[in-house]
């Protein structure tokens, strides 16, 4: 039921007004809430964000929906001190490149810890959090972030 709503697009911040980006947010709900990407049935390579065509197998590939486990490790990270609009009250915060156990790299905030607790190689798991809200009257956008595994 998801396939018609899954589009291979990266997360972009489109806050600021209460209506902006409503349709693209809705389209990305399967990705944002549940890390739903795709897998090539032919070569078993997994993609996040989802791809519609396998770049290796091309016309021989067979793409299907795949739900990632939501666990991985920190491949790299940076600490944000000059945060974009909508994130300024969270600074300083860690933004990581997470290597999911299935392979793909995902960019996400690493929360529930101080930035100096974040280290390359540490194990992380997905959590469901508020990303931003379109003002007091707009929609609240939720999605994946990661936290350190105890």
């Amino acid at each position: 039921m998801w396939e018609d709503r899954v589009r291979p697009r990266l997360f972009t911040y489109t806050g600021g007004t209460k209506m902006k980006g409503l349709a693209s947010y809705w389209r990305l709900i399967p990705q944002r809430y549940n890390l739903i990407g795709t897998e090539c049935n032919h070569c078993k390579q997994k993609f996040f964000p989802p791809r519609k065509i396998c770049p290796t197998c091309r016309r021989h590939g067979e793409i299907k929906s795949y739900k990632f486990k939501g666990v991985g490790e920190i491949y790299s990270y940076t600490v944000i001190h000059a945060a974009p609009d909508g994130f300024e009250f969270q600074k300083p915060y860690a933004l990581g490149l997470i290597r999911l156990v299935e392979g793909p790299l995902v960019t996400a905030q690493i929360v529930d810890c101080k930035p100096d607790e974040v280290e390359v190689g540490k194990k992380v798991e997905m959590v469901f959090r508020k990303i931003f809200a379109g003002g007091k009257e707009g929609t609240i956008r939720y999605g994946y972030k990661f936290k350190l595994v105890d």
Binding site: D112, F128, R129, K130, I131, Y142
Partner: peptide, 16 residues
Amino acid sequence: PSIDEDTATIAVTCAR
């Protein structure tokens, strides 16, 4: 709750 937590995030975590 953390700055990015609310009733919906708590409810989702409990349900999962």
